[in-house]
């Protein structure tokens, strides 16, 4: 594990971005909590913007998997549990 991944500010920023994506329960109270955290330290905002950008770009990756074909292959009785 790299030093970067251990960075607690990054971890927190990434967790916020992920919570926002999940939206369920991400209401105004959560947003106020987020902004409070962002205002606590300029580094928080920096990490958050970075995390949000990374998450956005992950959303621009073209789809690879053929989900329907994959589901069919899983439905076959001979298919093996791989994990």
């Amino acid at each position: 594990m790299t030093e970067e991944q251990d960075d607690p500010v990054w971890r927190a920023a990434w967790a916020w971005v992920r919570r926002e994506h999940d939206r369920e329960g991400f209401d105004e109270a959560a947003r106020v909590e987020l902004v409070t955290w962002l205002l606590a330290d300029p580094l928080h905002r920096k990490a958050y913007d970075k995390a949000a950008r990374l998450w956005l770009l992950a959303g621009l990756v073209p789809p690879v998997a053929d989900v329907e074909a994959w589901k069919k292959s899983q439905a076959r009785p001979s298919s093996q549990e791989d994990a």
Binding site: L54, L57, G59, A65, V67, W70, A83
Partner: peptide, 26 residues
């Protein structure tokens, strides 16, 4: 470029993980 590199990283993951992520993120 970054999108391409993320794509590469995701392609290393097991198929099931990629399918779940695709439904979730994309």
């Amino acid at each position: 470029q970054v999108v391409g590199l993320i794509e590469q990283a995701l392609s290393q993951l097991p198929a099931r993980t990629r399918v779940a992520f695709q439904l979730y993120r994309l």
